[in-house]
Design a protein around this nucleic acid. Structure first.
Lengths: 133, 133
DNA sequence: AGTTTCTACAACCATTTGGTTGTACGTTAA
DNA sequence: TTAACGTACAACCAAATGGTTGTAGAAACT
């Protein structure tokens, strides 16, 4: 079962938007290495607790992190699935580009002999990890 | 020949920000398949020419596309290098996550010597499916 | 010539973003 | 019980976004 859930445009928007901030990317790195409380995260950055709280909320809405209760703390944990989804998206872009290059190569190779790859083989994509669910 | 140029935070910001819009992602797809003029792109979307022009400018500032002259037209072409750079970034995130899973696995593999409660590992995460590599 | 096409850019507007401070509430510790 | 800690949330503000219209220049087509 491919996780390649066809993400809606809005979901992809939220994911990329969430990653478009250095503080948030740093938070993602930290909570992928190990979960941390919001206040522990806030201590790391030169901004108010509320600001960090908002950043975590943006990441949570994008599905990049999850929060769960632990006493009076909220532990933040990274969600690797979302990251893989973005990778799949980018893989798709790269395949599109390769197809274009292949087409150009075919044009250049065509005039004399038969094109080396008349079949529209999509450049044998890296096979996006058929992880089951 | 690894391009792996270290991107500054601001550059990564611009790249993710540029991808955080469905219209811009669509433009990237189109110009990766084949270069197109700005007006040809603008015809595709239900917005003004100037709006599409701005989107292209955002992509250009992020390095995701390049523009070059062709008569009175400006042809927009996708830049696969930038896409690979983002993939490298995401690869790094995924490696970080894997390192964390490996550490948890190591803890679980040595259950007799050290009691699991002795470690400060909080709430022993449900181990999100350690698909082997 | 004159006109159309493609592009650039400024000015403007509504909404969102990223930050702040302040208040309130549940949980832990004295 | 009281105090301290960790969090949530509202209100506010400056700046950036994403759209618009309008004006203007350069290239191509009568």
């Amino acid at each position: 079962m491919v996780v390649e859930t066809d993400l809606s445009d809005a979901e992809v928007d939220r994911i990329f938007r969430a990653l478009a901030d250095a503080t948030r990317r740093d938070i993602v790195e930290r909570v992928l290495t190990g979960e941390q409380s919001v206040s522990a995260l806030a201590d790391r950055y030169d901004m108010s607790f509320a600001a960090v709280q908002k950043h975590v909320a943006v990441l949570e809405r994008a599905g990049l992190v999850t929060k769960h209760h632990h006493g009076r703390e909220r532990l933040v944990r990274g969600n690797p699935d979302a990251i893989r989804r973005v990778q799949h998206l980018l893989d798709r872009y790269e395949r599109l580009w390769r197809a274009r290059i292949d087409a150009l190569d075919a044009l250049l190779a065509a005039p004399l002999a038969t094109p080396p790859a008349a079949t529209p083989a999509p450049t044998s994509a890296p096979t996006p990890v058929p992880e089951q669910e």
